[in-house]
């Protein structure tokens, strides 16, 4: 049965094909478009009292990832940072004891390997170099294994990487204590590397004689995750 709607221009098909075309362009060039948009909108989103920009994809904001079913919870009261392995004096620190050590303040970008970047994040923590010196690294130790108290996530650093002045066990970020979703009470911040190196919910540091690839590194990410020089990406470096 013919009807009034059968004739006419196939606009529906044109809209569909147009969207598919735009989508293909978006997948191929989205990385460049996204970073351009973020540069433009970052000044707005960083001083947004309404929080509405949380919903806008351009906003240079943290996205919360975890690899386990639930985010783990430890409080300032029951948190302990453990340092062990090939060291002379293994130790455990409470949060207060960690905060009593000489602090390092950094204001640097956080770059995720999936593309998003948050500019000028303020971090406070203790350098791994200070923690390692306190424990007394034994001869023959060349690397660190880092464990999260989520029970699944691990990371790795070479001794040289770990001793950089911009690699810290952070207890403050974004102007407050590190929140649970950002990996609090204590997380790693490895300034010159992609976000997956900055392990959240830091539980234990183990000094070893070889690099043992971490969680994402076993799934294909580069072990030496320098921003702009690894994982096939060319982002601007986050730390010299």
């Amino acid at each position: 049965m013919a009807s009034s709607d059968d004739a006419g221009t196939p606009i529906g098909r044109r809209i569909l094909l147009g969207m598919l075309g735009a989508g293909a362009v978006g997948v191929i060039f989205g990385e460049r478009i996204q970073s351009g948009l973020e540069r433009v909108t970052q000044p707005l989103t960083r001083h947004d009292p309404t929080g509405l920009t949380e919903f806008i994809p351009t906003a240079g904001r943290f996205r919360i990832y975890s690899v386990t079913a639930d985010m783990p919870r430890r409080t300032a009261a029951n948190y302990r940072l453990k340092v062990g392995g090939m060291v002379d004096h293994p130790f455990e620190l409470t949060l207060a004891e960690l905060q009593a050590m000489p602090p390092t303040n950094l204001t640097k970008d956080f770059q995720c390997v999936t593309g998003w970047r948050v500019q000028d994040v303020h971090w406070t923590g203790v350098t791994l170099a200070d923690l390692l010196d306190r424990a007394g690294v034994q001869d023959g130790a060349t690397a660190l294994r880092l464990f999260s108290f989520d029970g699944a996530y691990t990371e790795s650093l070479t001794m040289d990487e770990a001793r950089r002045p911009d690699v810290i066990a952070a207890y403050r970020m974004l102007g407050g204590p590190v929140s649970r979703d950002h990996g609090g009470p204590v997380r790693l911040y490895v300034a010159p590397m992609y976000g997956y190196k900055s392990l959240k919910w830091l539980d234990r540091i183990e000094v070893t004689d070889k690099v043992v690839p971490g969680y994402w590194e076993n799934l294909g990410y580069d072990v030496d995750g320098w921003v702009g020089r690894s994982n096939g990406r060319d982002d601007a470096p986050t730390s010299a």
């Binding site: 978006g26 060039f29 990385e31 994809p57 999936t114 998003w116």
Partner: peptide, 16 residues
């Protein structure tokens, strides 16, 4: 790897 960023970009905006 850059397609992952591009796909995230497309997924976000299309979702919005």
């Amino acid at each position: 790897v850059r397609y992952r960023t591009g796909a995230t970009f497309v997924h976000d905006w299309t979702a919005l």
